[in-house]
């Protein structure tokens, strides 16, 4: 076999592997749309997205998923409020401030956090956080937005932290050296030079963390309480979209309106994560720091 032919074959094999995931994604999306779109014969897109009532098994059924969308968005936003400062600041500490020995330990512990199965975190939220919240704030239920947000934040921190850290590392050392040479302190260097230079990477980290939180299923199924109503306070229960799909898909009769509606929720989730990824991509392209300061 000539070297040239070998080269061609190997190139083909690599291409095949690369396209396999593209093909799989395409098939999944096709399936999602094929199973989800038929619901719009029974209910209009606007009524589906903004309908206030989710009663898929009643006669006549009501397929409004607004409370579910609202539930997803609110737990994601709150979890970001907790996870972004923790994730970004821990990344700053690990990459810029910590001495080598502490750096190694902190970094591996944060990565270990990513390895905890979500069902374990969910269980923790159910039996530890929920009674704690209920007793502390004297609430009717501990399975609520705050609980879900805290647990989701714990899940999003490793994502945000490790991607932010990569972004901080990627800031050329010439930037820092130039800043120190001008007499800036470490704090001034971090806030005025390193953070702005790494901003696009950090924003990407935050958005990927959000995408992780909005798609997470087990945690919200276990600790968000599962009330399909638009919440009135942050201590109310909500039912985010993935929880609804997970809880109801098992017994929704194949081919029924309920079945198609659950797939249509999947489509909505798909578009939301796609949207997050596009924003992340846009930011990392647009605000990329280019150039370097070497002589």
């Amino acid at each position: 076999m000539s070297r040239h032919l070998k080269e061609t074959i190997i190139r083909g094999i690599f291409a095949l592997f690369a396209f396999a995931s593209v093909l799989i994604l395409a098939l999944i999306v096709m399936f999602l749309f094929r199973e989800g779109l038929p619901i719009f014969k029974e209910v209009s897109v606007a009524d589906f997205l903004f309908g206030q009532e989710w009663y898929p098994t009643y006669d006549p059924p009501a397929y409004g998923i607004w409370p579910l969308i609202f539930g997803s968005v609110i737990v994601t936003v709150f979890s970001c409020l907790i996870a972004v400062p923790l994730g970004v600041l821990s990344a700053v500490y690990v990459s810029e401030i910590a001495p080598a020995s502490i750096k190694d330990i902190t970094k591996s512990i944060i990565e270990l956090l990513a390895g905890i199965p979500s069902v374990v975190l969910g269980f923790f939220g159910m039996v530890v956080v929920a009674p704690f919240l209920q007793d502390t704030f004297d609430l009717p239920t501990g399975l609520n937005i705050v609980n879900a947000s805290v647990i989701l934040a714990i899940m999003a921190i490793p994502t945000i932290s490790s991607i932010s850290e990569d972004a901080l590392y990627a800031v050329p050392s010439e930037f820092k050296e130039a800043s120190y040479a001008l007499g800036a302190t470490k704090y001034e260097t971090i806030t005025n030079v390193i953070m702005p230079a790494a901003l696009s990477g950090i924003s990407t980290a935050v958005i990927l963390g959000m995408a992780r939180a909005i798609g997470e299923t087990m945690v919200v199924l276990m600790v968000a309480g599962g009330a399909a109503a638009v919440p009135e306070s942050i201590f109310d229960s909500v039912r985010p979209m993935p929880a609804s799909i997970a809880a109801e898909m098992g017994e929704a009769p194949f081919g029924s309106g309920h079945y198609h509606a659950l797939f249509a929720i999947g489509i909505v989730l798909f578009f939301l994560t796609l949207f997050f990824n596009l924003i992340a991509d846009y930011i990392s392209q647009k605000f990329k720091e280019v150039g370097s300061a070497t002589l």
Partner: peptide, 23 residues
């Protein structure tokens, strides 16, 4: 009522109610 909490199994209902004097 849409405010009803949802649990995915009877075991989970027992668990939730046993820990909550409001439920």
């Amino acid at each position: 009522t849409p405010k009803a909490q949802l649990q995915a199994s009877s075991g989970a209902v027992v668990q939730a109610v046993s820990k909550n004097r409001y439920a």
